[in-house]
Amino acid sequence: MAITVRPVDEDRFDDVQTVLGTRGQPARCQCQGYRMGWYDMHSPDVAGRRELLRDQVIEGHGLVAYLDDDEGDEAQDEPVGWCSLAPRRDYGYLRKTTWNGRDEDRADPGVWAVTCFVTRAGYRHRGVSRALAAATVDLARTHGARTLEAYPMRPAPGKEVTWGELHVGKLSSFLDAGFRIVHEPSLRRAVVRYDY
């Protein structure tokens, strides 16, 4: 399976919605949990969160992974994954949850954050999130980021991590993409960075 990752723009919003689906946590959240907080993310206003996500997509804050069409026709490529990334200062709730033991400017505009991955059912365990994690480096660079940060899970050997917990990605995907561990707020969570 060949995977191509492309930056989002207004024309790719429907592809993002295809990946998020119409039911389950990704469809409800619309990648707003780390922006709004978990209480607001669970409010019944899914349409409002969808419009907030549309604005972020128009700004180019994200990536879509596609399963390549065998004929080489980009229009026929199947959207299979989504990754949200933006300036860290845009994620108010994130700055509350990953900060224990850290001393730096939470609103530093040069620091971007990777917060969420969604892979469509039927396409999981095929390297979609790994391809997205690798592509975050170039996208943040094109937006002028000085540093890119992520908050992946570190599954214990032999232990399963539920899909919902892995929405932040696996540590190994980021390490393979050249990130380094800078903070470990818990046994299962790491903060990783890529400095330009």
Rank of each mutant, 00 (worst) to 15 (best):
V111M: 02
D9W: 00
A113T: 10
P155F: 06
S186K: 01
V168K: 04
Y194Q: 04
M1T: 13
D73V: 09
V137S: 09
D103V: 09
P109A: 05
A134E: 12
K170S: 09
E59K: 12
S173F: 10
Q25K: 07
R130D: 13
D90I: 09
K159T: 10
G37Q: 03
K159F: 13
T115M: 12
A156C: 00
D45M: 01
Q30Y: 03
S173G: 11
V19I: 04
V118C: 10
C116M: 07
P109V: 02
V161G: 00
L94M: 13
Y39A: 14
C116A: 01
H143T: 02
Y34H: 09
D70G: 13
P87C: 05
M153F: 09
D195Q: 05
H61N: 13
A86V: 00
P79L: 02
L166C: 07
W112V: 00
G101V: 03
G33Q: 12
R106F: 08
D70Q: 10
V128R: 12
L187G: 14
P152G: 03
L85A: 04
D90N: 12
D73P: 00
S173W: 10
P157H: 08
G37R: 05
R50A: 15
A190R: 13
K96Q: 15
D45G: 01
Y151T: 00
V57Y: 06
R126E: 14
L132M: 03
H61P: 00
P109L: 01
A177L: 01
L52D: 14
C29M: 03
G37Y: 03
R95I: 02
I3L: 08
P109W: 00
G122Q: 07
R120F: 00
Q30C: 14
W99N: 11
H143Q: 06
A156Q: 09
R50S: 13
E165T: 10
R120G: 08
V46S: 08
K96N: 10
P79N: 05
D70M: 03
L166Y: 01
R180G: 06
W163G: 15
R6A: 06
G60V: 07
V192Y: 02
R28A: 15
D77C: 04
T115L: 11
R102A: 09
R141Y: 07
P185H: 01
P44G: 10
A121T: 14
L52Q: 14
Q56D: 15
V114D: 04
T98Q: 12
A134M: 05
R180Q: 05
V128E: 08
E51A: 11
R6N: 02
G178M: 05
D70F: 09
S173Q: 09
A150M: 02
L94H: 08
R130Q: 12
D45S: 00
L175D: 06
W99T: 10
P157R: 06
D40R: 12
E74I: 13
E71M: 09
G92E: 08
F13V: 07
W163I: 15
M36A: 15
S186G: 07
Q25P: 03
V168S: 09
T97F: 03
G81S: 06
V182T: 07
P157L: 05
R88E: 11
G110H: 05
Q25S: 14
G72D: 08
A140R: 06
R54N: 04
R189Q: 14
R106A: 15
G81L: 08
C83R: 02
W38D: 13
